[in-house]
Design a protein around this nucleic acid. Structure first.
Lengths: 349, 349
DNA sequence: CCAAGGCATGTAACCGGTTACATATCATCG
DNA sequence: CGATGATATGTAACCGGTTACATGCCTTGG
């Protein structure tokens, strides 16, 4: 029956393959394959002929077959907490554009801030045959490391930079960023400072930032008590709740340092609704410098993170590595303090 | 030399395959394959044995090989303008979670609002072997239709619902939504109404919304002249520019209808900076009801879009279709008008 | 008690590319 | 002029699964 194999289920015009192209062009499959992967290794006349046949037929090479035999998928995976978040979205967009220029595809997965989910997603990506993986931060399931190792999948951590660690990383020094920001607040004269951080669990960037902030505040002898150190989820509503808690009491902070711009904005909106004048009564600062932070009212003083650059560099690191080069293993990217309208010296009283 | 094949490049412990599992479990590869794909078709004792071997070895089936021989990748593609946009990000996140429960993977590509890029990306996805495709809107490159047809790839349009068209779609009736929103504004008493829409090129949703808006305004004999109909990109800065143009003249609008929430927010921020009191001097409305629209100051009157539901339904449509069922082809989802603080009757004067 | 049919399992061809190796051609050099 | 090597192309084994078909066993009904 094998002579009927191409007549599957009525509609089944079997899609054309490399053998069809080879036959039409009067060459071998090997030559077509070489044309596809390294055109300059094929003679000019054959090159033209093959090219013409491919254009005419609209032939598209079968990526799975390619991946199977070459053991490379030209696919890079990335696992982030969620794409529903301006910062990741922006960086991923930039990464994707970059990878497209290198003829790589980005395969995206989310871990919902859960290292078990992350492991599961990583398994998924590995099964899918990614050539390399980009991970957010540095805290992850121990089995994940083994998984990547035994499958020989290179990876890079983004969002932090720890030259002491054996794993490659691209990012800013979050600890130092925390210090700079806190220092700016204390230099303005604030001594009653509260901190609304992102949840610390499994989030080393948030931890490093907080560590830097607290350290500076301690040096200035104004470390916030436990009631003035809150942790919230990444959204406006929760941040607003935190602000209401901080501002309802008798003794209020004159400045609130927030773990990122979204939290800062949530805090600011709630404070204004409570009748606070930002920055006259209360200064608010964040991290990340999201696109809209400079448009807000008041615009937000924050730490600018070169998000796009970080993600693109991470992508480039892996692409170079896969191309057999030896890129720089730890790339520290500069952040900067952006002064805007949401900060001022504390009120006199 | 073939007996050396497993010793590639020193580190090369060839990863284990289905034949290894079969040998260890004392069964044939076919049985292992059946265990993987339809466990209930394998006897209980063998099932246990195979399961144990797989757990011990950490075996992960090779997706490319699987795809090659089964001609199904369990991958669904989606092409959106950009992920750097709260609305898409949210919907995609929901879609991805849904597909994960069905053991499908989401392959994401962006078209940067360009139908040629979209075609290119679609080629990419097809080469990658997607089983189905989700597309945004309905305006696309004619070749793309052919491409999908000849490759037998089912697809669905999201964000609109046009039962008249032959292609499946899931979304709201944007034209009607535009009418409802405009109607609300005119019912409030506004007669000097400006419109700041998203760019119309290759964006049928934006076109439908605008059509609905203009139609209602014409009925009320207050259709905006060309100077009061602006088109901007999807970002706060451009929207702010538009607001400054509209509000600088002698004769100002008392309400501005915006193509979406981001534009509305950009307009609102710029207006407030110019000393306008929203909503007393100026009413502003948008579309989409992004997460933060209810937190803004003032909070935004807008059309609520069930984004998550739309994307998940689109995913379910394709999953069901691929499973051989016959899901509903055109699914209209309800929108709703959400009244908040950014609207009021026009000032007396 | 035997034929028929259902079920679990094994054998091996096949999916559509890549690539190691063989072969052919031609320029170069002692 | 023959040996040498570089370059272009062809042949066919292989990547790691899936699945059509074959096989063998067990149940069931006449």
């Amino acid at each position: 029956m094998s002579r009927f194999k191409s007549e599957k289920s009525a509609s089944g015009a079997r899609s054309i393959g490399i053998r069809d192209i080879a036959r039409s062009a009067g060459v071998s499959t090997a030559t077509v394959s070489r044309f596809l992967n390294k055109p300059e290794s094929v003679g000019a006349d054959l090159r033209d002929k093959i090219s013409r046949v491919i254009d005419e037929t609209g032939y598209i090479p079968h990526a799975s077959a390619r991946a199977l035999s070459s053991r490379r998928t030209r696919t890079i995976g990335a696992i982030v907490p969620t794409v529903d978040n301006a910062m990741f979205a922006q960086g991923l967009q930039a990464l994707q554009s970059y990878l497209a220029t290198k003829d790589y595809l980005l395969l995206l997965a989310t871990n919902e801030y859960d290292i078990d989910v992350e492991l599961q997603q990583a398994r998924n990506l590995v099964a899918r045959g990614i050539d390399a993986l980009i991970l957010r931060g540095d805290e992850r399931h121990p089995i994940l490391r083994r998984l990547l190792e035994t499958n020989g999948i290179p990876f890079v951590n983004v969002g932090l930079c720890e030259p002491a660690k054996p794993y490659p990383s691209v990012g800013v020094d979050n600890y130092e960023a925390g210090r700079v920001l806190a220092r700016y607040i204390t230099d303005l004269g604030h001594r009653r400072v509260a901190v609304v951080a992102a949840h610390q669990r499994n989030n080393d960037r948030a931890q490093a930032r907080l560590r830097g902030i607290i350290e500076v505040l301690e040096q200035q002898a104004c470390a916030p008590g436990p009631g003035w150190q809150l942790q919230v989820d990444y959204n406006l509503a929760d941040a607003g709740d935190a602000a209401r808690i901080l501002l309802q009491g008798e003794s209020r902070p004159t400045a609130i340092i927030c773990g990122n711009d979204v939290i800062a904005y949530g805090v600011m909106l709630a404070a204004i609704r409570m009748g606070c004048d930002v920055p006259r009564d209360l200064s608010v600062v964040g991290f990340d410098d999201l696109d809209w932070s400079r448009h807000l009212l008041p615009s937000l003083t924050t730490i600018h993170m070169p998000t796009n650059e970080i993600w693109v560099r991470a992508g480039r690191y892996l692409v170079d590595l896969l191309a057999g080069q030896a890129p720089i293993k730890h790339q520290q990217v500069d952040f900067s303090l952006v002064l805007r309208e949401s900060t001022a010296p504390p009120p006199k009283t």
